[in-house]
Design a protein around this nucleic acid. Structure first.
Lengths: 135, 135
DNA sequence: ATCTAAATTGGAACTGTTCCAAAACTATTG
DNA sequence: CAATAGTTTTGGAACAGTTCCAATTTAGAT
């Protein structure tokens, strides 16, 4: 059989049908540790890997994966979304000039004493972005 | 014709010519405490106030003010920028469903033990965004 | 195999923002 | 306060990233 079995299970567990495109993209995303990719970057990698996946599918898939908890969206720049394969608790350096994100392990930043959220609301996430410039 | 004097000074101090549009927008921005506005929102407020300022000028001005340190840009949503009139150190709640920002005073969030930035880079800012959803 | 619902596709549409050349303005100088 | 030079403003076109759409293809169940 194919070596896709674990990926298939991963998609099924997330409530997503294991289609060819989703499997291929999941595999590309999983290559080489934790990564931060934009839609265009993923599209380019898929093309390099010989896959041909429509850009609309890239967007659909990234959004579905995010919704399903297989990815996390990181918003650091207006007009562009990054998708993070690191699902554990952590934060980010953002190098604006390079447009690159670097993980910061959660235990290296202590966020203490969060004020209570407004009534009727609850905290969904706490995102810390440390912006970098050349020095 | 002189209730504008302090605003004129503020612009000059920032190295910006005190043009009619910049003065008018600076005044709108200064009304009613600290605020978080998008370009469209500022444009709408200006229109309501009877000013007519081109959208391109709104964008130019917001960017110039940000550059000059009269505003701060807050990135919480892909595809839309918020501009913050609160220049002091602080962080934000972001209510995604309402698209609204709420200030969190700096002393209510303790960010400790930041790791060293990569070589050749320095920390430009530390932005904490606490995302809210309905509970 | 057949069938139905879901996913993919390419392209058009849409949103927020920036760019552009022309016109209007601000500051300076005589 | 007039002429001038350099900025700023303007409306519209252009642009980037993303979403939408109708038609086609595919997955999973019968």
């Amino acid at each position: 059989m194919r070596p896709f079995a674990p990926l298939v299970d991963r998609l099924k567990a997330a409530g997503l049908r294991p289609t060819r495109q989703r499997l291929q993209l999941l595999r590309v995303l999983g290559e080489g540790g934790h990564r931060h990719l934009t839609a265009e970057q993923l599209s380019a990698e898929a093309r390099e890997a010989g896959l041909n996946v429509a850009l609309a599918t890239i967007y659909n898939t990234l959004n579905q994966f995010t919704q399903a908890g297989l990815l996390r969206e990181v918003v650091v720049e207006p007009g562009r979304s990054y998708f993070d394969t690191n699902l554990g608790p952590h934060h980010h350096f953002f190098d604006e000039s390079a447009g690159m994100l670097i993980d910061i392990p959660a235990d290296q930043i202590a966020v203490a004493a969060l004020p209570a959220p407004p009534p009727g609301k609850r905290v969904a996430s706490v995102d810390v972005v440390v912006r970098l410039t050349d020095s």
